[in-house]
Design a protein around this nucleic acid. Sequence first.
DNA 1: GGCAGATTGTGAAAAACTTAACGACTATCT
DNA 2: AGATAGTCGTTAAGTTTTTCACAATCTGCC
Lengths: 219, 219
Amino acid sequence: MDIEQHKIPQATAKRLPLYYRFINNLHSQGKLRVSSKELSEAVKVDSATIRRDFSYFGALGKKGYGYNVEYLLSFFRKTLDQDEITKVALIGVGNLGTAFLHYNFMKNNNTKIEYAFDSNPEKVGTEIGGVPVKHIDKLEDIVKGDITAAILTVPSAAAQGITDRLVHSGVSGILNFTPARITVPEHIRVHHIDLSIELQALVYFLKHYPLEAGEEQEE
Amino acid sequence: MDIEQHKIPQATAKRLPLYYRFINNLHSQGKLRVSSKELSEAVKVDSATIRRDFSYFGALGKKGYGYNVEYLLSFFRKTLDQDEITKVALIGVGNLGTAFLHYNFMKNNNTKIEYAFDSNPEKVGTEIGGVPVKHIDKLEDIVKGDITAAILTVPSAAAQGITDRLVHSGVSGILNFTPARITVPEHIRVHHIDLSIELQALVYFLKHYPLEAGEEQEE
DNA sequence: GGCAGATTGTGAAAAACTTAACGACTATCT
DNA sequence: AGATAGTCGTTAAGTTTTTCACAATCTGCC
Ligand SMILES: NC(=O)c1ccc[n+]([C@@H]2O[C@H](COP(=O)([O-])OP(=O)(O)OC[C@H]3O[C@@H](n4cnc5c(N)ncnc54)[C@H](O)[C@@H]3O)[C@@H](O)[C@H]2O)c1
Ligand SMILES: NC(=O)c1ccc[n+]([C@@H]2O[C@H](COP(=O)([O-])OP(=O)(O)OC[C@H]3O[C@@H](n4cnc5c(N)ncnc54)[C@H](O)[C@@H]3O)[C@@H](O)[C@H]2O)c1
Protein backbone atom coordinates (compact mmCIF):
# COMPACT_ATOMS: atom_id res chain seq x y z
CA MET A 1 0.00 0.00 0.00
CA ASP A 2 2.42 2.56 1.31
CA ILE A 3 5.76 2.92 -0.37
CA GLU A 4 7.48 3.01 2.99
CA GLN A 5 6.12 -0.43 3.73
CA HIS A 6 8.60 -1.88 1.34
CA LYS A 7 11.41 -1.01 3.66
CA ILE A 8 10.30 -3.53 6.23
CA PRO A 9 12.47 -6.65 6.15
CA GLN A 10 10.67 -9.86 5.38
CA ALA A 11 11.94 -11.44 8.57
CA THR A 12 10.28 -8.65 10.49
CA ALA A 13 7.03 -8.93 8.54
CA LYS A 14 6.81 -12.60 9.44
CA ARG A 15 7.00 -11.80 13.12
CA LEU A 16 4.28 -9.16 13.09
CA PRO A 17 1.35 -11.53 13.50
CA LEU A 18 3.13 -13.11 16.43
CA TYR A 19 3.60 -9.78 18.12
CA TYR A 20 0.02 -8.88 17.41
CA ARG A 21 -1.28 -12.00 19.07
CA PHE A 22 0.69 -11.45 22.25
CA ILE A 23 -0.17 -7.80 22.48
CA ASN A 24 -3.77 -8.85 22.14
CA ASN A 25 -3.33 -11.28 25.02
CA LEU A 26 -1.78 -8.61 27.19
CA HIS A 27 -4.61 -6.27 26.41
CA SER A 28 -7.21 -8.86 27.39
CA GLN A 29 -5.35 -9.33 30.65
CA GLY A 30 -5.73 -5.64 31.30
CA LYS A 31 -2.02 -4.93 31.13
CA LEU A 32 -1.28 -1.27 30.41
CA ARG A 33 2.40 -1.26 29.55
CA VAL A 34 4.99 -3.73 28.39
CA SER A 35 8.74 -3.68 27.83
CA SER A 36 10.65 -5.26 25.00
CA LYS A 37 12.21 -7.53 27.60
CA GLU A 38 8.87 -8.87 28.80
CA LEU A 39 7.66 -9.31 25.26
CA SER A 40 10.90 -11.05 24.43
CA GLU A 41 10.36 -13.67 27.11
CA ALA A 42 6.84 -14.31 25.94
CA VAL A 43 7.49 -14.68 22.22
CA LYS A 44 11.06 -15.99 22.46
CA VAL A 45 12.55 -13.33 20.23
CA ASP A 46 15.57 -11.31 21.32
CA SER A 47 14.52 -8.00 22.86
CA ALA A 48 16.86 -6.02 20.61
CA THR A 49 15.21 -7.64 17.62
CA ILE A 50 11.80 -6.62 18.91
CA ARG A 51 12.89 -3.04 19.40
CA ARG A 52 14.46 -3.04 15.97
CA ASP A 53 11.31 -4.53 14.44
CA PHE A 54 9.05 -1.98 16.08
CA SER A 55 11.36 0.86 15.11
CA TYR A 56 10.72 0.25 11.41
CA PHE A 57 7.30 1.69 12.07
CA GLY A 58 8.61 4.74 13.89
CA ALA A 59 8.90 5.42 17.59
CA LEU A 60 6.15 3.33 19.11
CA GLY A 61 7.53 3.34 22.65
CA LYS A 62 8.85 5.73 25.22
CA LYS A 63 12.38 5.60 26.59
CA GLY A 64 12.47 4.63 30.21
CA TYR A 65 8.84 3.51 30.04
CA GLY A 66 8.29 0.82 27.46
CA TYR A 67 5.31 0.45 25.17
CA ASN A 68 1.71 1.37 25.86
CA VAL A 69 -0.29 -1.78 25.23
CA GLU A 70 -3.40 0.00 24.04
CA TYR A 71 -1.46 2.10 21.57
CA LEU A 72 0.61 -0.82 20.35
CA LEU A 73 -2.51 -2.87 19.83
CA SER A 74 -4.32 -0.24 17.83
CA PHE A 75 -1.21 0.39 15.80
CA PHE A 76 -0.76 -3.26 14.92
CA ARG A 77 -4.42 -3.70 14.20
CA LYS A 78 -4.16 -0.96 11.63
CA THR A 79 -0.87 -2.21 10.22
CA LEU A 80 -2.04 -5.79 9.89
CA ASP A 81 -5.36 -4.69 8.39
CA GLN A 82 -7.26 -6.43 11.11
CA ASP A 83 -10.35 -4.40 10.42
CA GLU A 84 -10.88 -5.69 6.94
CA ILE A 85 -11.47 -9.35 6.30
CA THR A 86 -9.53 -11.27 3.71
CA LYS A 87 -11.50 -14.01 2.03
CA VAL A 88 -9.86 -17.38 1.61
CA ALA A 89 -10.79 -20.64 -0.08
CA LEU A 90 -9.66 -24.10 0.95
CA ILE A 91 -9.15 -26.79 -1.68
CA GLY A 92 -9.15 -30.45 -0.67
CA VAL A 93 -11.40 -31.42 2.22
CA GLY A 94 -9.40 -34.43 3.38
CA ASN A 95 -7.69 -35.10 6.68
CA LEU A 96 -5.79 -31.88 6.82
CA GLY A 97 -8.40 -29.73 5.12
CA THR A 98 -11.12 -30.89 7.48
CA ALA A 99 -8.97 -30.07 10.50
CA PHE A 100 -8.46 -26.55 9.20
CA LEU A 101 -12.16 -26.08 8.55
CA HIS A 102 -12.96 -27.04 12.12
CA TYR A 103 -10.43 -24.58 13.39
CA ASN A 104 -11.61 -21.06 13.76
CA PHE A 105 -8.89 -19.05 12.05
CA MET A 106 -11.01 -15.96 12.55
CA LYS A 107 -10.45 -15.93 16.29
CA ASN A 108 -7.32 -13.82 16.27
CA ASN A 109 -7.32 -13.19 12.66
CA ASN A 110 -8.48 -11.11 9.76
CA THR A 111 -9.00 -14.08 7.45
CA LYS A 112 -12.08 -16.12 6.79
CA ILE A 113 -12.40 -19.36 4.88
CA GLU A 114 -15.46 -18.63 2.77
CA TYR A 115 -15.64 -21.79 0.70
CA ALA A 116 -14.11 -25.22 0.57
CA PHE A 117 -13.83 -27.32 -2.58
CA ASP A 118 -13.50 -31.02 -3.17
CA SER A 119 -13.94 -33.46 -6.02
CA ASN A 120 -15.52 -36.13 -3.86
CA PRO A 121 -19.33 -36.05 -4.37
CA GLU A 122 -19.89 -37.30 -0.81
CA LYS A 123 -18.29 -34.19 0.60
CA VAL A 124 -19.85 -31.71 -1.78
CA GLY A 125 -22.95 -30.05 -0.34
CA THR A 126 -21.95 -30.60 3.28
CA GLU A 127 -20.87 -27.87 5.63
CA ILE A 128 -17.83 -28.23 7.89
CA GLY A 129 -17.09 -25.77 10.64
CA GLY A 130 -19.61 -23.43 9.05
CA VAL A 131 -17.91 -23.51 5.67
CA PRO A 132 -19.87 -24.87 2.68
CA VAL A 133 -18.11 -27.50 0.59
CA LYS A 134 -18.51 -26.90 -3.15
CA HIS A 135 -17.66 -29.07 -6.11
CA ILE A 136 -14.27 -28.40 -7.63
CA ASP A 137 -15.94 -27.88 -11.01
CA LYS A 138 -17.40 -24.66 -9.64
CA LEU A 139 -14.01 -23.34 -8.56
CA GLU A 140 -13.65 -20.63 -11.18
CA ASP A 141 -17.26 -19.47 -10.91
CA ILE A 142 -17.19 -19.04 -7.17
CA VAL A 143 -13.66 -17.82 -6.63
CA LYS A 144 -13.38 -15.35 -9.47
CA GLY A 145 -12.95 -11.82 -8.17
CA ASP A 146 -14.07 -12.66 -4.66
CA ILE A 147 -11.27 -14.64 -3.05
CA THR A 148 -7.79 -13.36 -2.28
CA ALA A 149 -5.91 -16.46 -1.19
CA ALA A 150 -6.21 -20.23 -1.17
CA ILE A 151 -5.19 -22.99 1.20
CA LEU A 152 -4.11 -26.01 -0.78
CA THR A 153 -4.64 -29.41 0.87
CA VAL A 154 -5.22 -31.72 -2.09
CA PRO A 155 -3.10 -34.78 -2.91
CA SER A 156 0.22 -33.65 -4.34
CA ALA A 157 -0.56 -35.11 -7.75
CA ALA A 158 -3.46 -32.68 -8.10
CA ALA A 159 -1.56 -29.67 -6.76
CA GLN A 160 -0.23 -28.16 -9.98
CA GLY A 161 -3.51 -28.57 -11.84
CA ILE A 162 -5.53 -26.92 -9.09
CA THR A 163 -2.90 -24.22 -8.76
CA ASP A 164 -3.24 -23.31 -12.40
CA ARG A 165 -6.99 -23.02 -11.98
CA LEU A 166 -6.61 -20.90 -8.85
CA VAL A 167 -4.26 -18.55 -10.64
CA HIS A 168 -6.67 -18.36 -13.51
CA SER A 169 -9.43 -17.53 -11.04
CA GLY A 170 -7.49 -14.56 -9.78
CA VAL A 171 -6.19 -15.53 -6.34
CA SER A 172 -2.98 -13.72 -5.41
CA GLY A 173 -1.61 -16.05 -2.78
CA ILE A 174 -1.47 -19.75 -2.04
CA LEU A 175 -0.63 -21.50 1.20
CA ASN A 176 0.59 -24.82 -0.08
CA PHE A 177 0.53 -27.81 2.28
CA THR A 178 1.28 -30.38 -0.39
CA PRO A 179 4.82 -31.66 -0.90
CA ALA A 180 4.65 -30.53 -4.54
CA ARG A 181 6.67 -27.41 -5.35
CA ILE A 182 4.15 -25.68 -7.52
CA THR A 183 4.95 -23.35 -10.39
CA VAL A 184 3.11 -20.02 -10.62
CA PRO A 185 3.39 -16.77 -12.57
CA GLU A 186 5.64 -14.18 -10.97
CA HIS A 187 2.89 -12.05 -9.51
CA ILE A 188 1.49 -14.87 -7.38
CA ARG A 189 2.91 -15.52 -3.94
CA VAL A 190 3.25 -19.06 -2.64
CA HIS A 191 4.22 -20.04 0.88
CA HIS A 192 5.07 -23.69 1.34
CA ILE A 193 4.37 -25.45 4.60
CA ASP A 194 5.86 -28.86 4.25
CA LEU A 195 5.06 -30.83 7.35
CA SER A 196 7.11 -33.91 6.52
CA ILE A 197 10.12 -31.74 5.94
CA GLU A 198 9.61 -29.92 9.20
CA LEU A 199 9.58 -33.18 11.06
CA GLN A 200 12.61 -34.52 9.20
CA ALA A 201 14.50 -31.28 9.74
CA LEU A 202 13.78 -31.36 13.45
CA VAL A 203 15.13 -34.90 13.65
CA TYR A 204 18.21 -33.93 11.65
CA PHE A 205 18.92 -31.05 13.99
CA LEU A 206 18.50 -33.28 17.02
CA LYS A 207 21.12 -35.67 15.76
CA HIS A 208 23.60 -33.27 14.28
CA TYR A 209 23.22 -30.07 16.24
CA PRO A 210 23.02 -31.05 19.89
CA LEU A 211 22.12 -27.89 21.79
CA GLU A 212 24.73 -26.61 24.18
CA ALA A 213 23.83 -24.61 27.22
CA GLY A 214 23.27 -21.05 26.12
CA GLU A 215 22.63 -21.85 22.51
CA GLU A 216 19.72 -20.26 20.80
CA GLN A 217 16.46 -21.84 19.78
CA GLU A 218 15.36 -22.21 16.22
CA GLU A 219 12.13 -21.01 14.69
CA MET B 1 27.65 -36.94 15.18
CA ASP B 2 30.64 -35.87 13.20
CA ILE B 3 32.41 -32.73 14.26
CA GLU B 4 32.48 -31.57 10.67
CA GLN B 5 28.69 -31.67 10.60
CA HIS B 6 28.64 -28.59 12.73
CA LYS B 7 29.97 -26.56 9.87
CA ILE B 8 26.79 -26.99 7.88
CA PRO B 9 24.70 -23.83 8.00
CA GLN B 10 21.27 -24.21 9.46
CA ALA B 11 19.66 -22.82 6.34
CA THR B 12 21.29 -25.62 4.39
CA ALA B 13 20.27 -28.27 6.90
CA LYS B 14 16.65 -27.25 6.55
CA ARG B 15 16.79 -27.81 2.80
CA LEU B 16 18.30 -31.27 2.98
CA PRO B 17 15.03 -33.17 3.40
CA LEU B 18 13.64 -31.29 0.43
CA TYR B 19 16.58 -32.26 -1.73
CA TYR B 20 16.31 -35.81 -0.53
CA ARG B 21 12.68 -36.07 -1.53
CA PHE B 22 13.28 -34.80 -5.04
CA ILE B 23 16.32 -36.94 -5.60
CA ASN B 24 14.18 -39.84 -4.51
CA ASN B 25 11.55 -38.88 -7.08
CA LEU B 26 14.15 -38.64 -9.82
CA HIS B 27 15.49 -42.04 -8.89
CA SER B 28 12.03 -43.61 -9.05
CA GLN B 29 11.61 -42.08 -12.47
CA GLY B 30 14.77 -43.85 -13.55
CA LYS B 31 16.71 -40.66 -14.10
CA LEU B 32 20.46 -41.22 -14.02
CA ARG B 33 21.87 -37.72 -13.81
CA VAL B 34 20.71 -34.28 -12.81
CA SER B 35 22.18 -30.79 -12.92
CA SER B 36 21.87 -28.10 -10.27
CA LYS B 37 19.83 -26.14 -12.79
CA GLU B 38 17.24 -28.88 -13.22
CA LEU B 39 17.07 -29.46 -9.51
CA SER B 40 16.69 -25.74 -9.01
CA GLU B 41 13.61 -25.61 -11.19
CA ALA B 42 12.05 -28.53 -9.37
CA VAL B 43 12.60 -27.38 -5.80
CA LYS B 44 12.54 -23.62 -6.47
CA VAL B 45 15.89 -22.94 -4.89
CA ASP B 46 18.58 -21.00 -6.74
CA SER B 47 21.02 -23.31 -8.48
CA ALA B 48 24.03 -21.60 -6.93
CA THR B 49 22.52 -22.20 -3.52
CA ILE B 50 22.09 -25.87 -4.34
CA ARG B 51 25.69 -26.21 -5.46
CA ARG B 52 26.86 -24.38 -2.37
CA ASP B 53 24.70 -26.59 -0.14
CA PHE B 54 26.02 -29.77 -1.71
CA SER B 55 29.57 -28.53 -1.53
CA TYR B 56 29.49 -28.51 2.26
CA PHE B 57 29.53 -32.28 2.00
CA GLY B 58 32.43 -32.37 -0.43
CA ALA B 59 32.49 -32.74 -4.17
CA LEU B 60 29.35 -34.71 -4.91
CA GLY B 61 29.14 -33.85 -8.59
CA LYS B 62 31.28 -33.89 -11.71
CA LYS B 63 32.07 -30.79 -13.69
CA GLY B 64 30.50 -30.75 -17.12
CA TYR B 65 28.23 -33.62 -16.12
CA GLY B 66 26.17 -32.81 -13.07
CA TYR B 67 25.25 -35.16 -10.27
CA ASN B 68 24.77 -38.88 -10.44
CA VAL B 69 21.29 -39.55 -9.06
CA GLU B 70 22.11 -42.94 -7.60
CA TYR B 71 25.16 -41.61 -5.82
CA LEU B 72 23.39 -38.51 -4.57
CA LEU B 73 20.54 -40.59 -3.25
CA SER B 74 22.72 -42.98 -1.33
CA PHE B 75 24.73 -40.09 0.02
CA PHE B 76 21.69 -38.26 1.30
CA ARG B 77 20.17 -41.40 2.70
CA LYS B 78 23.27 -41.86 4.80
CA THR B 79 23.48 -38.21 5.77
CA LEU B 80 19.84 -37.95 6.78
CA ASP B 81 20.01 -41.23 8.67
CA GLN B 82 17.27 -42.70 6.56
CA ASP B 83 18.23 -46.18 7.56
CA GLU B 84 17.49 -45.76 11.21
CA ILE B 85 14.03 -44.92 12.42
CA THR B 86 13.37 -42.12 14.87
CA LYS B 87 10.49 -42.73 17.21
CA VAL B 88 8.00 -39.97 17.76
CA ALA B 89 4.97 -39.45 20.00
CA LEU B 90 1.96 -37.28 19.23
CA ILE B 91 0.12 -35.54 22.04
CA GLY B 92 -3.43 -34.35 21.50
CA VAL B 93 -5.62 -36.45 19.22
CA GLY B 94 -7.95 -33.67 18.10
CA ASN B 95 -8.62 -32.26 14.65
CA LEU B 96 -5.01 -31.67 13.76
CA GLY B 97 -3.57 -34.64 15.64
CA THR B 98 -5.99 -37.04 13.97
CA ALA B 99 -5.05 -35.72 10.54
CA PHE B 100 -1.39 -36.35 11.26
CA LEU B 101 -2.06 -39.85 12.51
CA HIS B 102 -3.86 -40.69 9.29
CA TYR B 103 -0.99 -39.36 7.27
CA ASN B 104 1.82 -41.76 6.72
CA PHE B 105 4.88 -39.75 7.63
CA MET B 106 6.92 -42.88 7.11
CA LYS B 107 6.46 -42.81 3.38
CA ASN B 108 9.47 -40.66 2.55
CA ASN B 109 10.72 -40.49 5.99
CA ASN B 110 12.79 -41.93 8.75
CA THR B 111 10.30 -41.08 11.48
CA LYS B 112 7.48 -43.10 12.95
CA ILE B 113 4.72 -42.02 15.29
CA GLU B 114 4.78 -44.84 17.80
CA TYR B 115 2.17 -43.62 20.25
CA ALA B 116 -0.49 -40.97 20.53
CA PHE B 117 -1.76 -39.57 23.83
CA ASP B 118 -4.97 -37.87 24.81
CA SER B 119 -6.87 -37.05 27.97
CA ASN B 120 -10.27 -37.82 26.48
CA PRO B 121 -11.37 -41.31 27.65
CA GLU B 122 -13.34 -41.82 24.45
CA LYS B 123 -10.19 -41.64 22.39
CA VAL B 124 -7.97 -43.66 24.67
CA GLY B 125 -7.72 -47.30 23.61
CA THR B 126 -8.55 -46.64 19.98
CA GLU B 127 -6.09 -46.91 17.14
CA ILE B 128 -5.83 -44.25 14.44
CA GLY B 129 -3.79 -44.78 11.32
CA GLY B 130 -2.19 -47.76 13.01
CA VAL B 131 -1.10 -45.73 16.03
CA PRO B 132 -2.45 -46.69 19.46
CA VAL B 133 -3.94 -43.86 21.53
CA LYS B 134 -2.84 -43.99 25.16
CA HIS B 135 -4.02 -42.06 28.18
CA ILE B 136 -2.01 -38.97 28.97
CA ASP B 137 -1.46 -40.28 32.50
CA LYS B 138 0.77 -42.94 31.02
CA LEU B 139 2.93 -40.42 29.19
CA GLU B 140 6.02 -40.72 31.35
CA ASP B 141 5.86 -44.51 31.60
CA ILE B 142 5.62 -45.06 27.87
CA VAL B 143 7.82 -42.30 26.56
CA LYS B 144 10.71 -42.58 28.95
CA GLY B 145 13.88 -43.61 27.16
CA ASP B 146 12.10 -44.78 24.06
CA ILE B 147 10.91 -41.67 22.23
CA THR B 148 13.12 -39.00 20.68
CA ALA B 149 10.67 -36.30 19.68
CA ALA B 150 7.08 -35.23 20.19
CA ILE B 151 4.43 -33.58 18.04
CA LEU B 152 2.35 -31.26 20.16
CA THR B 153 -1.26 -30.74 19.08
CA VAL B 154 -3.07 -30.08 22.35
CA PRO B 155 -5.05 -26.92 23.14
CA SER B 156 -2.65 -24.08 23.81
CA ALA B 157 -3.66 -23.85 27.46
CA ALA B 158 -2.30 -27.36 28.01
CA ALA B 159 0.88 -26.83 25.98
CA GLN B 160 3.29 -25.75 28.70
CA GLY B 161 2.16 -28.41 31.16
CA ILE B 162 2.53 -31.21 28.65
CA THR B 163 5.85 -29.79 27.50
CA ASP B 164 7.24 -29.98 31.02
CA ARG B 165 6.17 -33.59 31.23
CA LEU B 166 7.69 -34.40 27.86
CA VAL B 167 10.98 -32.83 28.87
CA HIS B 168 10.87 -34.78 32.09
CA SER B 169 10.29 -37.94 30.06
CA GLY B 170 13.45 -37.36 28.10
CA VAL B 171 12.37 -36.24 24.64
CA SER B 172 14.95 -34.03 22.92
CA GLY B 173 12.77 -32.26 20.39
CA ILE B 174 9.25 -30.90 20.12
CA LEU B 175 7.33 -29.90 17.03
CA ASN B 176 4.88 -27.42 18.48
CA PHE B 177 1.68 -26.71 16.57
CA THR B 178 0.02 -24.75 19.35
CA PRO B 179 0.11 -20.96 19.37
CA ALA B 180 1.75 -21.06 22.81
CA ARG B 181 5.45 -20.23 22.86
CA ILE B 182 6.62 -22.90 25.23
CA THR B 183 9.56 -22.63 27.59
CA VAL B 184 12.05 -25.49 27.72
CA PRO B 185 15.53 -26.15 29.15
CA GLU B 186 18.39 -25.21 26.88
CA HIS B 187 19.19 -28.69 25.65
CA ILE B 188 15.71 -29.24 24.19
CA ARG B 189 14.97 -28.13 20.66
CA VAL B 190 11.58 -26.72 19.78
CA HIS B 191 10.36 -25.90 16.29
CA HIS B 192 7.19 -23.88 16.14
CA ILE B 193 4.72 -24.30 13.31
CA ASP B 194 2.13 -21.67 13.82
CA LEU B 195 -0.52 -22.07 11.17
CA SER B 196 -2.56 -18.97 12.01
CA ILE B 197 0.57 -16.89 11.77
CA GLU B 198 1.51 -18.41 8.45
CA LEU B 199 -1.86 -17.50 7.04
CA GLN B 200 -1.75 -14.00 8.47
CA ALA B 201 1.78 -13.47 7.21
CA LEU B 202 0.80 -14.57 3.71
CA VAL B 203 -2.05 -12.07 3.72
CA TYR B 204 0.24 -9.33 4.99
CA PHE B 205 2.73 -10.02 2.21
CA LEU B 206 -0.01 -9.98 -0.38
CA LYS B 207 -1.10 -6.53 0.67
CA HIS B 208 2.23 -4.93 1.35
CA TYR B 209 4.70 -6.68 -0.89
CA PRO B 210 3.09 -6.92 -4.29
CA LEU B 211 5.35 -9.14 -6.36
CA GLU B 212 7.00 -7.51 -9.33
CA ALA B 213 7.98 -9.45 -12.38
CA GLY B 214 11.27 -11.12 -11.63
CA GLU B 215 10.97 -10.98 -7.90
CA GLU B 216 11.78 -14.02 -5.90
CA GLN B 217 9.41 -16.35 -4.14
CA GLU B 218 9.30 -16.81 -0.43
CA GLU B 219 9.65 -20.05 1.44
C1' DG C 1 42.57 -37.31 -29.87
C1' DG C 2 40.95 -32.95 -29.70
C1' DC C 3 37.53 -29.51 -29.36
C1' DA C 4 32.90 -27.25 -28.26
C1' DG C 5 29.78 -27.01 -24.82
C1' DA C 6 28.14 -27.94 -20.22
C1' DT C 7 28.48 -27.77 -15.40
C1' DT C 8 30.69 -27.86 -11.06
C1' DG C 9 32.90 -25.87 -6.89
C1' DT C 10 34.21 -21.75 -4.83
C1' DG C 11 36.34 -17.03 -3.89
C1' DA C 12 34.54 -12.81 -3.27
C1' DA C 13 30.84 -9.58 -2.85
C1' DA C 14 26.44 -8.46 -1.59
C1' DA C 15 22.39 -8.81 0.96
C1' DA C 16 19.81 -9.91 4.85
C1' DC C 17 19.38 -10.45 9.44
C1' DT C 18 20.68 -10.37 14.45
C1' DT C 19 22.88 -8.74 18.40
C1' DA C 20 25.62 -5.71 21.44
C1' DA C 21 26.13 -1.39 23.34
C1' DC C 22 25.01 3.03 24.76
C1' DG C 23 23.15 7.87 24.96
C1' DA C 24 18.91 9.84 26.02
C1' DC C 25 15.09 9.72 28.45
C1' DT C 26 11.22 8.18 32.18
C1' DA C 27 9.40 6.98 36.40
C1' DT C 28 9.75 6.39 41.12
C1' DC C 29 11.69 6.35 45.63
C1' DT C 30 13.72 8.73 49.45
C1' DA D 1 15.72 17.41 44.24
C1' DG D 2 18.73 13.97 43.41
C1' DA D 3 19.69 9.28 43.03
C1' DT D 4 18.45 4.85 41.08
C1' DA D 5 16.74 1.54 38.15
C1' DG D 6 14.81 0.86 34.16
C1' DT D 7 13.86 1.25 28.89
C1' DC D 8 13.83 2.80 24.10
C1' DG D 9 15.77 3.85 19.50
C1' DT D 10 19.69 3.52 16.97
C1' DT D 11 24.53 3.17 15.50
C1' DA D 12 27.73 0.04 14.66
C1' DA D 13 29.45 -4.50 14.58
C1' DG D 14 28.84 -9.21 13.89
C1' DT D 15 26.79 -13.23 11.75
C1' DT D 16 24.51 -15.85 8.40
C1' DT D 17 22.83 -16.56 3.96
C1' DT D 18 22.47 -15.74 -0.87
C1' DT D 19 24.18 -14.62 -5.19
C1' DC D 20 27.55 -13.55 -8.84
C1' DA D 21 30.81 -14.92 -11.86
C1' DC D 22 34.36 -17.71 -13.65
C1' DA D 23 38.47 -20.95 -13.83
C1' DA D 24 38.79 -25.70 -13.82
C1' DT D 25 37.40 -29.68 -15.67
C1' DC D 26 34.57 -33.14 -17.52
C1' DT D 27 31.48 -35.02 -21.33
C1' DG D 28 30.18 -36.23 -25.71
C1' DC D 29 30.93 -36.07 -30.31
C1' DC D 30 33.37 -36.02 -34.52
N1 LIG E 1 -2.56 -35.18 6.64
C1 LIG E 1 -1.34 -34.84 6.99
O1 LIG E 1 -0.98 -34.93 8.14
C2 LIG E 1 -0.38 -34.30 5.99
C3 LIG E 1 0.94 -34.10 6.39
C4 LIG E 1 1.84 -33.60 5.44
C5 LIG E 1 1.43 -33.31 4.17
N2 LIG E 1 0.16 -33.51 3.83
C6 LIG E 1 -0.23 -33.19 2.48
O2 LIG E 1 -1.45 -32.48 2.49
C7 LIG E 1 -2.24 -32.86 1.40
C8 LIG E 1 -3.57 -33.35 1.90
O3 LIG E 1 -3.37 -34.41 2.80
P1 LIG E 1 -4.59 -35.20 3.41
O4 LIG E 1 -4.04 -36.15 4.39
O5 LIG E 1 -5.62 -34.26 3.85
O6 LIG E 1 -5.09 -36.01 2.13
P2 LIG E 1 -6.53 -36.60 1.86
O7 LIG E 1 -6.40 -37.63 0.82
O8 LIG E 1 -7.17 -36.97 3.15
O9 LIG E 1 -7.35 -35.37 1.29
C9 LIG E 1 -7.26 -34.94 0.00
C10 LIG E 1 -8.64 -34.40 -0.39
O10 LIG E 1 -8.53 -33.78 -1.67
C11 LIG E 1 -9.63 -34.21 -2.46
N3 LIG E 1 -9.22 -34.14 -3.86
C12 LIG E 1 -8.49 -35.01 -4.56
N4 LIG E 1 -8.30 -34.57 -5.82
C13 LIG E 1 -8.93 -33.39 -5.90
C14 LIG E 1 -9.11 -32.46 -6.94
N5 LIG E 1 -8.57 -32.63 -8.15
N6 LIG E 1 -9.84 -31.36 -6.69
C15 LIG E 1 -10.38 -31.16 -5.47
N7 LIG E 1 -10.24 -32.01 -4.45
C16 LIG E 1 -9.52 -33.12 -4.67
C17 LIG E 1 -9.96 -35.59 -2.01
O11 LIG E 1 -11.31 -35.89 -2.29
C18 LIG E 1 -9.69 -35.49 -0.51
O12 LIG E 1 -10.85 -35.08 0.17
C19 LIG E 1 -1.48 -33.92 0.65
O13 LIG E 1 -0.78 -33.35 -0.41
C20 LIG E 1 -0.51 -34.41 1.66
O14 LIG E 1 0.69 -34.86 1.08
C21 LIG E 1 -0.76 -34.00 4.71
N1 LIG F 1 -6.97 -27.46 13.75
C1 LIG F 1 -6.30 -26.51 13.16
O1 LIG F 1 -6.48 -26.28 11.99
C2 LIG F 1 -5.30 -25.68 13.89
C3 LIG F 1 -4.74 -24.59 13.25
C4 LIG F 1 -3.80 -23.80 13.92
C5 LIG F 1 -3.44 -24.14 15.21
N2 LIG F 1 -4.00 -25.19 15.81
C6 LIG F 1 -3.58 -25.52 17.17
O2 LIG F 1 -3.32 -26.89 17.30
C7 LIG F 1 -3.77 -27.35 18.55
C8 LIG F 1 -4.75 -28.46 18.36
O3 LIG F 1 -5.82 -28.02 17.57
P1 LIG F 1 -7.07 -28.93 17.29
O4 LIG F 1 -7.94 -28.21 16.36
O5 LIG F 1 -6.60 -30.29 16.92
O6 LIG F 1 -7.75 -28.95 18.74
P2 LIG F 1 -8.75 -30.05 19.31
O7 LIG F 1 -9.45 -29.41 20.45
O8 LIG F 1 -9.53 -30.65 18.21
O9 LIG F 1 -7.78 -31.17 19.86
C9 LIG F 1 -7.10 -31.10 21.08
C10 LIG F 1 -6.99 -32.51 21.64
O10 LIG F 1 -6.15 -32.48 22.77
C11 LIG F 1 -6.75 -33.24 23.81
N3 LIG F 1 -6.31 -32.71 25.08
C12 LIG F 1 -6.74 -31.62 25.74
N4 LIG F 1 -6.04 -31.45 26.88
C13 LIG F 1 -5.15 -32.45 26.93
C14 LIG F 1 -4.16 -32.83 27.88
N5 LIG F 1 -3.92 -32.12 28.97
N6 LIG F 1 -3.43 -33.91 27.60
C15 LIG F 1 -3.66 -34.64 26.50
N7 LIG F 1 -4.57 -34.35 25.57
C16 LIG F 1 -5.31 -33.25 25.80
C17 LIG F 1 -8.23 -33.09 23.59
O11 LIG F 1 -8.93 -34.20 24.14
C18 LIG F 1 -8.32 -33.07 22.08
O12 LIG F 1 -8.47 -34.38 21.56
C19 LIG F 1 -4.36 -26.16 19.27
O13 LIG F 1 -3.39 -25.61 20.12
C20 LIG F 1 -4.67 -25.22 18.15
O14 LIG F 1 -4.57 -23.88 18.58
C21 LIG F 1 -4.93 -25.98 15.17
